[in-house]
Amino acid sequence: MRPGTRKLAGLVLGAAILMAAGVAAEGIPHRRVADMLYLVVSSDRAVYTRKVVQRLTRDKKIITASEHFEDDSALPLPAQMFRFGAELVTDKTEDFSYSLLSLHPINKKNGPGTNMERKGLEYVANNPGKNYYGEEKLGGRRYFTAVYPDYAVAEACVNCHNSHKDSPHADAKVGDVMGGVVIRIPLD
């Protein structure tokens, strides 16, 4: 990860952890905490997508964005930026975790891995504008799990998804639900 990307991911992570820690202390319900975390992570990624990737690649044509950003001296893709942040979070805390998944992922490991992930992804795909909430047990621990629709917020998203060799999409449009953001908070 480049230094700039690291800083950005660090800011996202810091804000999210502070928010989670603060609200947990206040006794705010898990659902509300998850909603707030979603707001932070999805907003930061939307800003990165529009103000960094789309502006510098499509609009200004200064740099490209690439899955192999280190080899290509390019910007990380918005989904990568999102995942790097998620990995940093799981590396630093067990208080919450988040992931970006899809029923039709480019990388198969980002497909639904649990029954609740599948249910949630199907629900947000079939019920525009609605979120999915539930509880599940993973590795002997109970979790509050929330699934939020993940929209294609910019041309950069759909262009990549329509052209990538591993993508099942060929006709995605801006505004489509491409997958879901899954947030988990342990209940035990």
Partner: peptide, 20 residues
Amino acid sequence: AGDSHSRKKFRGPRMAAYRE
């Protein structure tokens, strides 16, 4: 090396089944 299977990728609840 950009570790393809870094430790952090296996943390988090959704990797519990793999960890078993």
